Each structure stands twice: as C-alpha cells, then as structure tokens.
Amino acid sequence: EESQDIKALQKELEQFAKLLKQKRITLGYTQADVGLTLGVLFGKVFSQTTICRFEALQLSFKNMCKLRPLLQKWVEEAD
C-alpha cells in the first residue's frame, strides 16, 4: 500500500538526515559548506537554510526526496 511506502520513505529520510548531520559535524563542515560543495558536485548551490531545513526535516516530502540523492553523494564524497 502506498501510504506504507511513504511512511517507510519518511523514516528513511529521517535516518538519513540524522546521518548527514552527524557526518557533517564530525568532519567539521558547516551547513553552508555542504550547500557550496553540492554546487561544486552538481552545479547547483544550495543555501545554508536549505541544508538546515533538510536536517530538521522541515522541507516538503517532495523536496526531501529530490535533495536526498544529492546529499547522499555528498556523504559518500566527504570521506
């Protein structure tokens, strides 16, 4: 059922947002740094506010889903 899928996805997004924040802090990056690095990787800079709202799960579900693969890549590249 679709609502189950969405619930599962939301849970996954929550966990990912936590992971992103932990990783960012561990590596000593600011939210603005992450936004700028996305610009380098994908040619589209994201504001500190956007990263902040992603981490706080304050973006729309659709936006969270759109941003996630980009931030996933950041997490992979950041090591």
Rank of each mutant, 00 (worst) to 15 (best):
E1R: 13
E1T: 06
E2G: 14
S3T: 15
S3P: 00
S3V: 15
Q4L: 11
Q4W: 10
Q4F: 11
D5T: 09
D5H: 10
D5K: 08
I6V: 01
I6R: 14
I6A: 12
I6M: 13
K7S: 11
K7V: 10
K7I: 05
A8T: 15
A8Q: 14
A8K: 07
A8M: 07
L9S: 14
Q10K: 15
Q10I: 06
Q10D: 10
Q10R: 14
K11G: 09
K11P: 14
K11R: 08
K11Q: 13
E12C: 06
E12T: 05
E12F: 15
E12P: 04
E14F: 11
E14M: 07
E14D: 03
E14Q: 11
Q15F: 10
Q15N: 12
Q15V: 10
F16C: 08
F16T: 01
F16M: 10
F16K: 06
F16L: 10
A17R: 01
A17V: 09
K18A: 12
K18D: 04
K18Q: 12
K18M: 13
L19K: 15
L20P: 07
L20V: 11
L20E: 07
K21Q: 09
Q22G: 02
Q22S: 15
K23F: 00
K23V: 00
K23P: 00
K23Q: 08
I25T: 03
I25L: 15
T26A: 14
L27G: 05
L27R: 06
L27N: 05
L27D: 09
G28V: 01
G28A: 00
G28K: 03
G28Q: 05
G28T: 01
G28S: 01
Y29M: 14
Y29A: 05
Y29S: 01
T30E: 00
T30I: 01
T30K: 01
Q31S: 03
Q31F: 12
Q31C: 15
A32M: 04
A32D: 00
A32E: 11
D33W: 03
D33A: 03
D33S: 03
V34P: 13
V34A: 01
V34K: 12
V34Q: 08
V34I: 11
G35T: 02
G35C: 02
G35R: 07
G35M: 01
G35A: 15
G35P: 05
T37M: 13
T37G: 15
T37K: 13
T37I: 10
T37H: 14
T37S: 14
L38W: 08
L38M: 14
G39K: 09
G39P: 07
V40L: 11
V40C: 15
V40E: 13
V40H: 13
L41C: 01
L41Y: 07
F42G: 10
F42D: 04
F42W: 09
F42N: 09
F42K: 08
F42C: 13
F42Y: 11
K44M: 06
K44D: 08
K44A: 04
K44N: 08
V45K: 13
V45C: 10
V45G: 09
V45Y: 13
V45I: 02
F46K: 09
F46M: 12
F46W: 05
F46E: 07
F46T: 12
S47T: 09
S47E: 08
S47M: 00
S47W: 04
S47A: 06
Q48Y: 13
Q48P: 13
T50E: 14
T50G: 03
T50Y: 07
T50D: 14
T50W: 05
T50K: 02
T50I: 03
I51V: 04
I51L: 00
I51M: 02
C52Q: 15
R53P: 07
F54M: 03
F54T: 13
F54D: 05
F54H: 06
F54E: 01
E55K: 04
E55M: 00
E55A: 10
E55S: 05
A56E: 13
A56R: 04
L57Q: 13
Q58M: 01
Q58C: 00
Q58T: 10
Q58S: 07
L59D: 03
L59A: 01
L59G: 05
L59K: 05
L59I: 09
L59T: 03
S60E: 09
S60V: 00
S60T: 06
F61T: 13
F61K: 08
F61Y: 10
F61M: 12
K62W: 01
K62I: 08
K62E: 12
N63W: 01
N63F: 09
N63C: 07
N63Y: 06
M64Q: 01
M64S: 05
M64D: 01
M64K: 07
M64G: 02
M64H: 00
C65I: 15
C65W: 07
C65L: 14
C65H: 00
K66A: 12
K66V: 06
K66H: 14
K66W: 07
K66R: 12
L67M: 11
L67S: 03
L67Q: 01
L67R: 03
R68W: 12
R68Y: 15
R68A: 08
R68Q: 06
R68H: 00
R68C: 05
P69I: 00
P69N: 12
P69K: 07
P69H: 08
P69M: 02
L70E: 00
L70S: 04
L71Q: 02
L71H: 08
L71C: 04
L71D: 00
L71S: 00
Q72T: 06
Q72Y: 03
Q72E: 15
Q72S: 06
Q72P: 05
K73S: 02
K73A: 10
K73W: 04
K73Q: 10
K73T: 10
K73H: 06
W74D: 05
W74R: 01
V75Y: 06
V75Q: 08
V75C: 06
E76C: 11
E76A: 10
E77M: 12
E77C: 07
E77G: 10
E77S: 06
E77F: 15
A78V: 14
A78K: 09
A78N: 01
A78M: 11
